[in-house]
Write a protein that binds this DNA or RNA. Structure first.
Length: 198
DNA sequence: AATGTCTCCAACCGCTGTAAT
DNA sequence: CATTACAGCGGTTGGAGACAT
């Protein structure tokens, strides 16, 4: 009876193998059909996620490097919480991975920085906190500023984040150009730069 | 050593956008 | 044009392991 119920939770090695095999045969599409064809008692959605976040070839599974962290910070400042967009710039990393990293590592850094700077500049912090109250990125805001025809100079005006402290709060001294330079120092020097324009 | 708390990350959920019919 | 199905995205949750007491 319960045979037909979908499985949830951690994936087993056998499930991974079956999924890889069926994707090799059918390709990365029609996830519901693919899930059924595989014989796995998983939803198509679950299969897709497992593939994209874990099984896909060329994924990096190691720690986020300092250079990647730097880039994430910069891109988050630029794009807000558009994790998939950020992930595009970090080959081998998934949006989920970046999102998790942001929440667990970088948010903490942001808060620490904020606390440190709080004592020295109260009025400024108050002003910043009022900016943060909006909690999430107003969609129109992000889209509009962004459609800036690739004009990244507008990035500095994107003083927002999700419910977290914006990076602009803790790296206030970073200009976009500065960060861009640093990013290039990290990546371009080792032919790892995928940013655009190059 | 036992227990409680915290952190991290894989996986899920709900919503939106888009393509197909 | 309306409806439906699918794909993708961002936010959230829950479990496992690490760490503190």
């Amino acid at each position: 009876m319960h045979q037909d119920e979908l499985r949830r939770g951690q994936w087993l090695e056998e499930e991974d193998e079956s999924l890889v095999m069926i994707i090799a045969m059918l390709g990365e599409r029609r996830w519901d059909a693919l899930a059924k064809a595989s014989g796995l008692r998983r939803s198509g959605k679950s299969c897709r996620l497992r593939w994209l976040n874990y099984l896909r070839p060329n994924l990096k599974h190691g720690h986020i490097t300092a250079g990647e962290e730097h880039l994430i910070i910069q891109l988050q400042k630029q794009f807000g919480n558009k994790w998939s967009k950020i992930a595009e710039q970090l080959p081998g990393r998934t949006d989920n991975e970046i999102k998790n990293y942001w929440k667990s590592h970088l948010r903490k850094k942001a808060l620490t920085y904020k606390q440190e700077s709080f004592g020295s500049n109260t009025s400024n912090s108050e002003q910043q906190s009022s900016t943060l109250k909006s909690d999430t990125v107003p969609s129109s805001h992000s889209d509009d500023s962004f459609s800036g025809k690739g004009d990244c100079s507008s990035a500095d005006s994107l003083a927002y984040s999700s419910n977290d402290t914006t990076l602009l709060d803790w790296i206030p001294s970073w200009s976009y150009e500065q960060s861009r330079m640093e990013h290039h120092m990290y990546f371009c020097s080792s032919n790892l730069c995928f940013c655009y324009p190059p």
